[in-house]
């Protein structure tokens, strides 16, 4: 299937917007419940950054689509089959170890992506990426340090973190999977081919995992489906909660 650049921008911005929004939502669930006060504040900062990125990407998606949908219309009025986030980020928090490993696997990808998007010839894309890049560089530093602390902490923390890594690893393949939108933008030179991010991502992950004294899981079978709207059961609950008010009061302005 070939699509034009505007359609591709819509699809790509939706993928990044949804991924940022869902991950930001998951992190925001920690607010008031983190293991220590300082970390509560740190996680919320990252959640705020991610929801901020989501707003920018969804607004760009709405413009590219040209149907008059704004950030809220896109965030609050689409059902699961229209969401385009990676399955990784909708996985539940479970415990702090899962949250941190999920975050690190995503952050390491986001840094690679935004570094390349920051030099995109499309000014809209480059602008969002340049702003987000500063933030995700801090995110990956934060999450990598925690992976190391937990992996190389106590026997308990090591076991929990390894378990999280094993459980979440099969969700990492999707981040590098091309879809019609990303392929079209890569062909137009607006975005990198996502497969090209894999080598540097893998190297960063390998370094951190080694320093954390953890074992990098083998690349076996990988989960897929988020890019075509086939999600895990978790996303439905997340959206039900997030979208409750605009759905219950469809005529209201908040």
């Amino acid at each position: 299937m070939t699509i034009d650049t505007q359609q591709a921008l819509f699809g790509f911005a939706l993928r990044l917007g949804d991924t940022s929004l869902v991950l930001g939502h998951r992190l925001s669930e920690w607010c008031g419940h983190a293991p220590e006060l300082e970390e509560d504040i740190a996680l919320t900062n990252i959640a705020l950054d991610l929801v901020g990125h989501a707003r920018l990407w969804l607004s760009l998606a709405g413009e590219a689509e040209g149907q008059g949908r704004d950030e809220d219309r896109l965030a609050y009025r689409r059902d699961v089959f229209d969401y385009r986030n990676h399955l990784l980020v909708e996985q539940p928090n479970r415990d702090f170890g899962h949250t941190i490993v999920r975050q690190f696997l995503h952050d390491a990808w986001a840094v690679e992506l935004y570094e390349r998007l920051a030099t995109s010839p499309d000014a809209g894309v480059a602008g969002i990426a340049a702003k987000a890049l500063k933030e995700v560089r801090y995110h990956v530093q934060h999450s990598a340090e925690w992976v190391i602390r937990l992996g190389d902490g106590t026997a308990v923390s090591h076991a929990k973190t390894q378990e999280a890594l094993d459980r979440l690893w099969p969700y990492t393949g999707e981040m590098f999977e091309a879809d019609a939108a990303s392929s079209a933008l890569a062909a137009a030179g607006i975005a990198p081919a996502l497969a090209d991010l894999r080598a540097t991502w893998a190297a960063r992950v390998a370094d951190t995992v080694a320093e954390a004294t953890l074992t990098r899981p083998a690349d076996g079978w990988m989960h897929k489906g988020g890019l075509r709207g086939e999600h895990s059961e978790h996303l439905g609950y997340l959206l039900a909660e997030m979208q409750f008010l605009p759905r219950a009061y469809p005529d209201a302005v908040w």
Partner: peptide
Amino acid sequence: ITRAPSLRRKVALLAKVQ
């Protein structure tokens, strides 16, 4: 926070609780 009815309200509330 997870039920705020717009993204603008969501970031404002998140920042306030933080």
